[in-house]
Simulated scan of single mutants.
Amino acid sequence: MTLLYIKFYKTIRIAVCQVMVGAPACVSNLEELIALGAKKIFVCGECGVLDRTIDDAHLIISTSAVRDEGTSYRYLPVSDEVELDTYGIKVIEEVFKKEGLQYKKGKVWTTDAPYRETRKKMLQRKEQGCIAVEIECATLAAAAKFRGITFAQFVYACDNLDAEKWDQRGLTVRPVSKKVQTFELAMECAINL
């Protein structure tokens, strides 16, 4: 069962949880939240970048996700990608602009095999237009469409795959203060969704 924290953010009652990592586990959390009555789901997390010009901790709004995992196919018919809800994208963009934040919008690559993010595969995904890699977006977007709920996501850049050698950057050394700022930004997006 998903552990929920109910809190008020700017007088709005909101449920917050830390979901499990990986598409199958994360979508199980999503299904439980929907069963508990959730109609809108907002997710924020880390990603690897496929473009070295994207700075560490830079914000990325996911617009679509390449389906290189298996779980999304249990929710939607076979296709290479799943589009994210344009309303959710618009909400995140409005919050970022209001806060004066720099961001990128783009396609992400969802894989359930992070240790198989080979250079060849990374270059292939980059050619498809992906700017980042993560492990849940395609599945969550597919499940949200299947269940008829609103889903939106932003990620922030961590490690860099667009180099001769993997560059960890801020992946495991991000200061707590920066994570708190990102969490508060996610809360702002969530209450506007």
Rank of each mutant, 00 (worst) to 15 (best):
V95W: 04
V95R: 13
T111C: 07
V49H: 00
E46P: 10
V95Y: 07
D55Q: 15
E117D: 13
Y115H: 14
S64F: 00
E93K: 13
I131W: 04
R119M: 08
V95K: 12
A38F: 00
R52T: 03
A132Q: 11
Y87P: 01
R74C: 07
V66D: 06
E94R: 15
I135C: 11
N29P: 08
K107V: 02
C47N: 14
A138E: 02
T139I: 00
P114G: 07
N29K: 09
H58P: 04
Y75P: 10
S28T: 09
K105L: 04
E46G: 14
E93N: 13
E81N: 11
Y73T: 09
L123T: 10
E46Q: 15
T139K: 07
G48K: 10
A132P: 10
E31A: 08
C47T: 13
K121A: 13
R119K: 15
V43L: 12
K121S: 07
E69R: 09
Y75C: 02
V78E: 14
S72T: 05
G48Y: 10
I60D: 09
L101Q: 13
V78A: 12
V82M: 08
K107W: 06
L76D: 00
E83N: 12
S62D: 11
V43Q: 06
V78Y: 11
C130D: 01
Q124F: 06
A65L: 06
G45I: 03
V95Q: 11
S64D: 13
V108D: 06
I34G: 00
P77D: 10
I89R: 15
A138Y: 03
K104S: 12
